[in-house]
């Protein structure tokens, strides 16, 4: 297996260096690519200086587009497995092997890092947790599977999934709980793996300002669209 670690990063000059160091310190000889989502700071420079391959989007396109770029990159460069973690240091690189193992053993198509199983983790704020519970419940209602951490961006994917995500089926503006619902309906196997996540000091997360309102709306719409779309069923039939 040829795994690739991908790190989507937008203005993460402060943290990207240490994330890359910690990945290198695993000493697994993992290939790493940083997807620089149009940062205006030195993110790309720092990553290149660390000897990392950088794919630089010319302007900020959002987390989902950066991730999909990573999937397309992995496919073109002949990798057959991707581990993704955030560039803000929120995800513990030490848990990469645990995620990879699930994919390498063929136990699942998606290894979903969960901060809520295994116990050693932080708890996000009340509003965020409410959203997680709500969408976790919705995902459960639609798929019959309980996910403990539907908003986790710390994941590993196999090649089948990369190919599935490299198309327009991938909801590139806010990929989240709706992706899990879509994958389940398309017959992909998902396994949750305990991982460590840290609270980023002074975090300006994806879910701040007015965005939570749009997020909730978009997620509701996206999740309810999933059962209505034929393409997912078509994938299952082939």
């Amino acid at each position: 297996m040829r795994p690739l670690v991908v790190i989507p990063a937008f203005n993460e000059a402060l943290t990207i260096g240490s994330v890359l160091e910690r990945v290198a310190a695993l000493d697994l000889g993992l290939a790493v690519a940083v997807i620089d989502d149009g940062s205006s700071d030195a993110t790309a420079v720092i990553a290149r200086r660390a000897g990392t391959r950088v794919v630089r989007l010319p302007f900020n396109m959002g987390y989902g587009v950066a991730l999909q770029t990573a999937y397309k990159f992995a496919l073109r460069e002949g990798y057959d497995c991707v581990v993704q973690l955030d560039g803000d240091g929120q995800h513990e690189p030490g848990d990469i092997p645990a995620l990879l193992e699930v994919i390498e053993r063929g136990e699942a198509d998606l290894a979903l890092g969960s901060r809520f199983i295994g116990g050693n983790t932080y708890w996000p704020g009340a509003a965020r947790r409410l959203g997680m519970h709500f969408f976790g419940f919705l995902a459960f209602a639609l798929t019959g599977v309980r996910f403990s951490d539907v908003t986790s961006g710390f994941q590993a994917l196999n090649r089948d999934l990369l190919e599935f995500f490299a198309t327009e089926r991938y909801p590139a503006d806010y990929p989240d709980a709706d992706v899990l619902v879509m994958l389940k309906r398309a017959g992909f196997r998902i396994k949750e793996v305990p991982v460590r996540m840290y609270r980023k000091p002074g975090a300006r997360s994806l879910h701040s300002g007015l965005r939570p309102i749009y997020y909730v709306f978009k997620m509701l719409l996206s999740i309810s669209m999933t059962p209505l779309r034929r393409e997912v069923i078509e994938r299952r039939e082939t």
Binding site: I35, T69, R76
Partner: peptide
């Protein structure tokens, strides 16, 4: 969608 794909294509080729 076209702009997204074009941007990704550009970034991949440039890389």
């Amino acid at each position: 969608t076209q702009l997204k794909n074009l941007t990704q294509e550009f970034a991949l080729l440039e890389s």
